[in-house]
């Protein structure tokens, strides 16, 4: 059986299809599309981008992201974990906010520097 999906790795958005048995991927313009389709079939994961509390004068929330995708079903758990995080300035882009979340090896890092 073939599963149709839209590759979302880049804005080209290839309409790829994957064979659910052989895992053969078609219609992808590049390798990343093949990887994406397999992953989406076997172990869907997502990046999470959200915010945490910060005491900056410029903005009341600091944007953060996971350094890699985490299992899709963990998204809300991670949101919950970040509810009570409070960061103090100064923060640099890339600073680790939470490390190795749910033992995935993935960190949550700041995506903006806030110095004051």
């Amino acid at each position: 059986m073939k599963k149709e999906m839209i590759c979302i790795v880049c804005p080209v958005g290839c309409h790829v299809s994957i064979d659910t048995k052989t895992h053969e991927v078609q219609n992808n313009k590049c390798k990343r599309g093949e990887r994406y389709a397999k992953k989406e079939l076997l172990n869907p994961t997502r990046m999470l981008t959200t915010t945490v509390n910060i005491d900056s004068i410029h903005q009341r929330r600091l944007p953060v992201k996971t350094t890699d995708a985490i299992p899709k079903e963990k998204l809300f758990d991670l949101m919950d974990l970040l509810e009570s995080v409070e960061i103090k300035i100064p923060v640099n882009l890339g600073d680790v906010i939470l490390s190795n979340v749910f033992d995935t090896g993935v960190d949550v890092v700041a995506t903006m520097s806030l110095k004051d």
Binding site: V9, P63, L93, T111, M112
Partner: peptide, 10 residues
């Protein structure tokens, strides 16, 4: 690279 908006801005 896949960046977030704030990262791209920075």
């Amino acid at each position: 690279e896949e960046l977030t908006g704030p990262e791209y801005a920075e």
